[in-house]
Design a protein around this nucleic acid. Structure first.
Lengths: 405, 405
DNA sequence: AAATATTATTTTGCTCAGTGAAATAAATAT
DNA sequence: ATATTTATTTCACTGAGCAAAATAATATTT
């Protein structure tokens, strides 16, 4: 229901069932065995046995409190929920100028965050992994957590990365190309470590904890310095054949249009990315050129025509880009995550209007749209979500091994 | 491997296995049991039993002829292949001015085609289904096939259609909206009948018989009057949440661009669709306005600047649109199916160049591109492909029921 | 308070798809 | 002819998931 289970390596049918049950529980705040059976369309007997294993492993727990709402006749259902205390996990976003660490528990609740500033934005893979260790230790120290309690680490990084294998084809944060990080993780890090593209991880966070909870088809569009996208289709992340799809930021919105940081022309992010808006709003100014979206907004508010025009155009183009996504993917929902500050009126309306005017009209309502702030911890939380998912698999499998012994 | 089997209604595990084996055989010209076991990653025992059922049902057959190539030691493998004679099937494309019927056998080989011209391009659902019956009878008559031999019918129609349920939300060929065709089929047609969107069906045809054979992620782009797209992800057709995705023709390539037949502006097909090119190449001409792509090509060849410019622009825009698809979907392969006539040099190169220049650069090679002629029978063949797939399911299940008795 | 009704969960015995190992089949090599 | 090799089939078994029966825990009725 939530993830591609069959594709997970070395997971037998029983583990897959347990995992499905675990994810069903996670997708609700709390749920009874009967309801799980119904949700997964399987027999109560199967659910009982899977829950037994999960309880024994400490991954879930029974809730004492009576279920709220109208009291029913008959034996009351026992609600199950994720046992947050099962273990801790570190999500780390490899950003340009810092490593952002968030420590979460198994339920996804945040224990705390920590940022390790960086001098250089690109480094050798080996040095990067050592730095991750430094960041982890510092974060634990800062938050009063024993590093030994951390059961897993998940890293989010821009670039083309195969999240299943931990192989990085290219990243703006790493000097080398084509690096297999797995051996590096094994040498330098104290626990299982996972790596994936950062936009994918935000999609995963939305899928597990956010607006995408329980949805099968939705998109996450991230707008900050550049523009990224995560695609969830059929309940699982779509990565493309070579692992380099979802490059919305470099889809073309104009023939021979504005120059992009990638060197091509007419890329979406060359109009709506932070850097592009700053650049465009600075054109022709000798002094007082804006250096951030906040400054452009302030200037527009103060009546500056160019600033207004840049914001207006970006809003419209982003609306059109979202409309194109609706036309192509027809998703259930789109999450638009953009960095602060939020845009003032009338810009959001310009975007929504462009979205509406450019989607194919059918009877069915448009997909839902959630606009949310993409703060730094969101990225790291996405990494954590990925880690939770991967660790769930490990733990369930581990438990299976214990059973067998 | 080839299709979402679990999603098929009422198909138990055994039927699903048989179907997987059947599709594995279909995906190769011929294949031995051993190789099937390897391809499906299952045991030879399982394959033996599945093949037994399929042989008994007459859906496959053993090939007598010794396998070609170097003669091996040991017991020679017995090659299996689809038994084309298992049954016949009619694929029917509901086009604007005609019903195009193609009769194929179970292997997908064409028995023959037939076109029934239509006076009106839109009609009531009921009348349409009656006409389908007329077309079927006429086609069988014309091709010397007994209608009773036809085991299934598949219809392809433009519009928003749920291919699983046979429910049509909207179609340009039908006057009503929101029609459930299943009861109509039951009343008027002599055998199981399936309905789907036409671009999806072309994708299916490519998947079963064409350039998409054995691929998991590929796109089919159709360019004729308008622009359509079929998306195959993870081995199955992606239809979007509301069944109205893949509207590539109405994705926007210009803000406030050319007017499209859908009423919006800047749609891809308002630049590269046949109607748009004819319109644009006619602009400002009092006489000798072209009425077809062939005429525009002839004019360009004769040195007409406007005709050349229209062709050049359409080629470039189509290249950019394809690049955007690569950037978003990162498919294994793209099939570009366009109606005759083929474009002369330099237009294909302009398109390819635009494609290359606008895709995100990674180490991995670009997805493959097949440009193919989209003749009328292709659509109908797509319908037939869909019908074969659905009928395979029915037949396999039927056989299961016989076994049980 | 006891009996009854109702709903949730667990237990039990069974089914059946898929498997590994052994048997068999069909060819080549010696 | 016999040994070797490879493909396929047979057979006994495993194990996931299920239906039905049993049990548990509650509310309602008598």
């Amino acid at each position: 229901m939530l993830m591609d289970l069959a594709a997970l390596s070395g997971l037998d049918a029983r583990d897959a069932t347990r995992l499905r049950v675990l994810q069903c529980i996670r997708s609700q705040e709390e749920i009874s065995r009967t309801d799980i059976a119904q949700a997964l369309d399987s027999s109560p007997a199967t659910v009982t046995s899977a829950c037994g294993a999960l309880l024994e492993a400490g991954l879930i727990r029974e809730v004492e409190r009576a279920p709220s709402g109208a009291v029913q006749r008959g034996r009351p259902r026992v609600m199950l929920q994720i046992n947050g205390a099962a273990f801790l996990l570190a999500g780390i976003k490899i950003a340009r100028h810092a490593f952002l660490v968030v420590i979460v528990d198994f339920k996804g609740d945040e224990i705390g965050t920590y940022a390790l500033p960086l001098a250089e934005s690109r480094m050798q893979a080996d040095a990067l992994v050592r730095r991750v260790r430094t960041a982890l230790d510092a974060a634990c120290d800062h938050l009063g957590v024993d590093v030994a309690q951390i059961a897993g680490i998940a890293l989010g990084m821009p670039g083309f990365i195969n999240g299943q294998t931990g192989f990085m084809h290219w990243s703006s944060s790493v000097i080398e190309r084509n690096v297999d990080f797995v051996p590096l993780f094994q040498v330098h890090l104290p626990c299982p470590t996972f790596l994936d593209n950062d936009a994918n991880l935000v999609a995963k966070a939305e899928h597990l904890f956010g607006a995408g909870r329980g949805l099968r088809n939705f998109l996450v569009v991230t707008v900050e310095h550049g523009v990224g996208m995560g695609i969830v289709l059929d309940g699982k992340l779509y990565r493309g054949e070579r692992g380099c799809g979802a490059e919305l930021g470099h889809s073309k919105v104009h023939i021979d249009g504005a120059v992009c940081q990638c060197g091509q022309r007419g890329c979406l992010e060359a109009y709506v990315g932070d850097y592009a808006m700053v650049r465009d709003a600075s054109t022709g100014r000798q002094t007082d050129a804006p250096t951030s979206i906040a400054e452009i907004l302030a200037m527009a508010r103060a009546g500056d025509a160019l600033a207004h025009q840049v914001l207006e155009r970006a809003s419209e183009i982003l609306g059109v880009a979202l409309a194109n996504l609706v036309n192509l993917f027809d998703p259930e929902h789109i999450v638009l995550a953009r960095s602060r500050p939020e845009l003032d009126p009338p810009y959001p309306d310009i975007m929504l209007d462009a979205l509406r005017r450019n989607t194919v009209q059918v009877d069915a309502p448009l997909p839902g749209l959630t606009v949310r702030n993409l703060d730094k911890s969101m990225w790291a939380k996405g990494a954590a979500a990925h880690g939770i998912e991967m660790l769930s698999i490990l733990k369930v499998r581990e438990r299976g091994a214990v059973d067998a012994a």
